[in-house]
Design a protein around this nucleic acid. Structure first.
Lengths: 219, 219
DNA sequence: GTGTATATCTCGGGG
DNA sequence: CCCCGAGGTATACAC
């Protein structure tokens, strides 16, 4: 990783045009070829950037970064305060826990935690309008399409609407109920879900994990 | 801005749990208090971060960053390769051109570019389900709700559906047509728009700009 | 502040 | 390769 602290102005020409007036900034050049221009604020997002793969041409007082799509980032440097390079090696990568994927796994393992008597048919059930998180059968034989979110918002209800409308056209599945499951279901999503005739349910991640370990102990 | 190149491991505990095994990385501490841990790849996004405002406690071989929500980032440092600080000052900020906002302005100025005889009623017409990009009247007196996107995708059609359904309940506006306008309308969006009874239209940004300058010359 | 929509989103998975 | 969905999304803007 090469770190250049410099007074510079920057121009990006690609999906849009963007210009940065002269100021002191950090120019970060990563080993994979991506370039980022950072100011001293504004969260982690750089002011300007170019993702790898890139071609970097270092001219006299001006660098030009070009990507295969023909987008360019032109950095005009007036003063270099520091220019260092560091060998960082390949990063072992981030280990995550707690995201929707894990919530989906937990609920797939114990659909009865969503609704009594619910049985899993298939996780990520494929349809022409996208994969349904969980396709289940209810105790009374009704098909239930379950949409899982960390936070249940309006777009989750829209997604569920598309799935249910599609599935309900299949005579082998009809009638199909929609069910929105989230750690937290926002008021607007509750209303829209109700209007669309869908049930919604809040679940607790830690409780589910506890139930999982209980299940593992019992069986 | 403080730049620390160090061998470290990192733990985040907050909305999820995330762990970074020991490796050499860049720790970027910005003047506004945000912290970002960068590896030597992976676009501009850091492996781990904490947005401002934060409280940073530098302990012996371990830093703890805490935010008001109680989330923590713990950086365990085993070896410091470099630790520098730079005064960058306040950045003058990025000047952009070409985003949806400008497309909206251009189309508001020349709705006839979307459809012959179309007249603007109001830009950002407010409804209970969000603002409609352009509310127009067609030549035959029909109300037309226009949703503008850079790329027309399925969620744009969903948005338009909500607007049209809402507007169509107003006797002064009924009947209301929906119209999706984008630089590029994706196949799935075309299908869904057609199914919902909406027209869609692709427009060229540069052509619109050209028409604008022509208009300015003529009038 | 909440809610809504955008982003040069980034990132990962599946066909 | 594109398409689609999720994100600790971040960010701006309106109510």
């Amino acid at each position: 990783m090469r770190l250049v602290v410099a007074a510079c102005s920057v121009d990006y020409a690609g999906r849009l045009s963007a210009h940065l007036p002269p100021a002191r900034r950090l120019i970060m050049l990563k080993a994979d070829g991506c370039v980022a221009i950072h100011a001293d604020g504004g969260a982690y997002k750089p002011l300007n950037w170019m993702n790898a793969p890139n071609r970097l041409v270092e001219g006299e007082g001006s660098w030009t970064v070009t990507n295969p799509a023909g987008e360019t980032l032109t950095i005009t440097i007036t003063e270099v305060l520091s220019d260092t390079e560091w060998e960082l090696g390949v990063d072992p990568g981030l280990q995550k826990d707690g995201v929707e994927a894990h919530l989906q796994v937990l609920l797939a393992e114990q659909p009865q935690a969503i609704e009594e008597g619910l049985v899993l048919v298939r996780r990520e059930y494929p349809t022409d309008v996208g994969p349904v998180d969980l396709l289940c059968k209810a105790q009374d034989g009704t098909t239930v399409a379950v949409e899982i979110k960390r936070r249940g918002e309006i777009d989750g209800v829209e997604q569920l609407s598309r799935y249910v409308a599609f599935l309900d056209r299949d005579p082998r599945l009809r009638p199909v109920r929609g069910l929105l499951v989230a750690q937290q279901v926002k008021p607007q999503a509750r209303i829209l879900a109700t209007v669309r005739g869908f049930a919604w349910r809040e679940v607790d991640y830690d409780t589910l994990r506890g139930m999982e370990s209980t299940t593992l102990r019992l069986f």
